[in-house]
Design a protein around this nucleic acid. Structure first.
Lengths: 181, 181
DNA sequence: GTGCCCATGTAAAGGGTTACATGATTAA
DNA sequence: TTAATCATGTAACCCTTTACATGGGCAC
């Protein structure tokens, strides 16, 4: 369970509203931890109750209902505590791979189109990541430690997508090969 | 939701008991879809109720309580139906990456040891996968389509672990670098 | 006969997904 | 003024996780 900690991290990077957090979870941080707006609102309410964060009306609020949250010392301490815990390695739940196993024994299944679609999705994401990299990490050496870490996280995403694409193309070639006995 | 379909696939590959399925989910198929024995027993009961599978006492049962399950035509049809559905791409939930983001802004966090531990785990898994590959896919060309697909699935795991290790080593070097300014 | 593994389950709690609800601003 | 988007929520359902329970076989 680390959704609250993902939210804390995101809020530490920049205080913001639940709505904007949800959008951030659809983009940058969401590539490593997905969450819907319902989850986020629920967690924000919980964490405010626990004294980890506090809500406030931003100075430029005007007439909107927008409410911002910022991390309190207790929240920061909790994040540090959690980060020191051992983490189990990510467990994968890839339903497409299950379908491939089904394909291997079933005949009636044809995953070519679906695989091609996935390959295109991965290519699109890769392009996004590369654009972010070009924008946020232009020169190489003069980086703070924080920037260097953030760059490595982005590179992890890039490597992952590159791997998916390379593998996906080989797999597609295999699936398209006519079934010779 | 595709745990039942992962179970169906596994049962099609080989009829077996809930207990052995659970162990299989701790190994081969579990690398792409994790499940505990509680989930598996529950799914087996549900699927038997739905007429997708049937339980039977294996001929060599003797005095054990062991019960085997095999896939019925309805289950096979359901698997085909499901495989034809579009799949969303896997969404990642990698708490270690969240911790890295926390590290980038927190100072009090030190992830070196944990990262080294993860790297060792990935190396161990890679070794396992390579051993399986050497055992199950020795020669190259004379493969059936099913074997070729299964080999590609294994290769996906190998590529993934190799990527994790390469990235993890670079990341470790970065984390170990003394914080200059 | 004690301890360990096999083998199957139940129960409770918590997290995630989907559907629904509401009101307020902004653009056509 | 109608539709879309902003912004925040509630409720129900399902899935997953964790803890507990049970009883049989087997080895020492």
């Amino acid at each position: 369970m680390s959704l609250p900690h993902a939210v804390l991290t995101s809020l530490l990077e920049k205080s913001t509203s639940g709505y904007d957090l949800a959008r951030r979870f659809d983009k940058s941080i969401g590539y490593f931890w997905h969450a819907t707006h319902q989850q986020i609102y629920r967690e924000l309410a919980r964490m405010e109750g626990a004294g980890w964060i506090e809500g406030f009306v931003p100075p430029d609020a005007g007439k909107t209902r927008k409410k911002h949250y910022r991390v309190l010392p207790a929240g920061r301490a909790e994040l540090v505590r959690w980060a020191a815990e051992p983490t189990p390695p990510m467990d994968l739940r890839d339903s497409f791979t299950v379908k491939l196993r089904a394909d291997a024994i079933l005949d009636e299944v044809d995953l070519c189109e679906e695989l091609a679609r996935h390959n295109a999705l991965h290519a699109a994401r890769l392009a996004q990541y590369r654009a972010i990299e070009a924008r946020d990490f232009p020169a190489t050496p003069p980086l703070t430690r924080a920037q260097a870490i953030q760059h490595m996280i982005l590179k992890k995403g890039i490597l992952y997508e590159e791997g998916e694409i390379a593998w996906g193309q080989e797999m597609l070639a295999l699936l398209r090969r006519p079934a010779q006995t």
